[in-house]
């Protein structure tokens, strides 16, 4: 590994903003997975056959989960884009030098 790459790696690690961003992305992915798990659990519960009242409740929660996942996905895309842009601008700066 070249010395420049090593410096970049160390810089990446020490850059607290980048690190926070990465940790946020990691958490968000984890939460999205949890939401998907909950969604599957509720869907199978609904299919197993519950009374109408419970069916309605499950449907409402499923709709809300869907909205949360949609919001989460938008946020994930945005965070990933910001991180890529930060990396790109750093590369450009290094190229200029």
């Amino acid at each position: 590994m070249k010395i420049n790459e090593l410096i970049n790696l160390a810089d990446d690690y020490l850059n607290s903003k980048n690190r926070k961003q990465k940790s946020k992305i990691k958490c968000l992915k984890h939460i999205l997975k949890k939401l998907r798990k909950r969604e599957k659990k509720l869907e199978s519960k609904r299919q197993k056959g519950v009374n109408d009242n419970d069916k309605e409740k499950i449907s409402s929660e499923l709709k809300l989960i869907h909205a949360h996942r949609k919001k989460g996905l938008t946020l994930l895309k945005q965070l990933q884009q910001e991180l890529n842009e930060a990396k790109k601008s750093k590369k450009d700066k290094a190229g200029d030098i």
Partner: peptide
Amino acid sequence: RIVLPTLEA
């Protein structure tokens, strides 16, 4: 456990 949608519902 994910509380957000359950409590919201």
